[in-house]
Amino acid sequence: MKKLDKKLIKWFIGKNVFVDERIQKEVGIFATRTVFVLFVFELLFGFGIVVYASNSQIADFETLFYISTFVQAIGVLFLVYGFMLIPMAKKRLLVKEVSPEDKKEFVKRLQHSWVRIAPLEFVGFWILHSLFYFNEGFFNVLFSFKEIISALIFTIFFTLFMSLYEKMHVKTIKDDE
């Protein structure tokens, strides 16, 4: 397996998970299943929208566009969660095991890593969120007090949530279990 593929798996399932041949195999099985389901979903959804748009009298295509892209985004999210992340969690693939003496140090390192990337999250959210309102003047929105505060709040909550989420998946080693 290429280094890039390993990095991709780590990025997807969490950087603390040890990617060995079993994880690669399981991820491969779940990914194949998910791709197939996504293909069927996109095919049926796209076909359905085309049939609906061509057979009914639609006055407002803009709303139809918004609704269909929203349903697509939510659908993809649910399918990836339902067919990949939940089964992987059930098989305990997302669990990171550490020895009891290393646990404290490991959790500390984990939290520090999320704090280290917090500025990136802040900038990412700040720019992306401002882009939503770019017809009101991108730079006016970008440097508005409200936008900076909302990016700050997002960063704080996201950092806290992610460190707690990853902490939850750290387990102490119990041999023969």
Partner: peptide, 18 residues
């Protein structure tokens, strides 16, 4: 231990257990 063997062969402990 399972962990020691796992480290030697380069897999996760759960893999050895399975």
């Amino acid at each position: 231990s399972q962990m020691a063997l796992a480290e030697k062969v380069g897999v996760a402990r759960q893999t050895i257990n399975l």
